[in-house]
Design a protein around this nucleic acid. Structure first.
Lengths: 155, 155
DNA sequence: TTATTTGCAAAAACTTTGCATACGG
DNA sequence: CCGTATGCAAAGTTTTTGCAAATAA
């Protein structure tokens, strides 16, 4: 099975603590946005986050969603995920991991593989990098789902 | 030295042939856009391509640049490059290669490394992929330039 | 000649900003 | 209370589209 985010969703109380820990005021809007992010693994765009929360929280504006996501990225609570479409998508999982981009559905799936991470790190360590500090290494796997109705799994 | 696109720029006549070969009509606008792409290695956005060509070709509109880039991507003459900013950037180099994203300058550098490609391919072959066909494997290295005035090199 | 491509402008999609109000710490 | 965050609307970006005119094949 593909390991998406490994951890279980955390409670609203724990989100509150996490926000504070990262230097952010724990507002209702931020709790809601964070909760939506942790419950979906589809690396949503701002618009998609807005749609996810809107029926339960009609007063939260799209501008607030954008601002909230930006503040999360700045606080390093989430990251922007690489994408080929020209829009920002976000990743709740801040552990080093890889991504599988499904080109027939535009879905992005987390692929957690510490062994692969080690291999890459070791390989690049051998190379002489001049004038560069590496911050992150990630493999981007572009793939196609053969049967959209069946499950996807790795090993 | 980092290997950017390995090949030398090709002549306008050769671009013409290439366009035809890929099923695209060889219009002046397309020749100009392709030529601009092959001469820069900075993975430009549509806007940047427009700026690059505009002084010599003031009659080519930004809409045409967008349409041209789209038609190139569709014809598989170029690819969209992954980016964290929410806009499309393009890559003239269609050979399998990796990218180094310089987070302090927003530049994207090609990193051509067939050995790394082999290691990755072999590693993933060992994994049991169910219901997926892999189209592309690429490593995305996020790095910071230590001294912006000095050259960057790998091995 | 004919289907495709272009230029232009307008619309759509995506994102940021300014300012008065609300609210967490 | 104080300063940050929000809501809203408006402005700014980025990208797409529709249509008449131009042009490659």
């Amino acid at each position: 099975m593909i390991q998406n985010s490994i951890s279980q969703p955390i409670s609203l109380e724990e989100i509150k603590n996490k926000l504070t820990e990262y230097g952010l005021k724990a507002t209702h809007q931020r709790l809601v946005v964070y909760d939506a992010l942790q419950k979906t693994h589809l690396h949503p765009s701002a618009e998609e986050v807005y749609t996810l929360i809107h029926s339960d929280n009609p007063s939260i504006s799209i501008a607030t969603v954008y601002n909230t996501l930006d503040s999360f990225v700045e606080a390093k609570l989430i990251t922007r995920v690489l994408s080929e479409e020209g829009k920002s998508r976000y990743d709740f999982n801040t552990h080093q991991h890889h991504h599988i981009y499904l080109c027939n559905t535009d879905e992005i799936i987390d692929y957690h593989d510490p062994e692969l991470q080690k291999i890459l790190t070791a390989y690049l360590k051998k190379k002489k990098l001049t004038n560069l500090t590496i911050h992150e290494l990630q493999v981007h796997i572009k793939a196609e789902v053969i049967n959209p109705k069946q499950k996807i799994s790795i090993q």
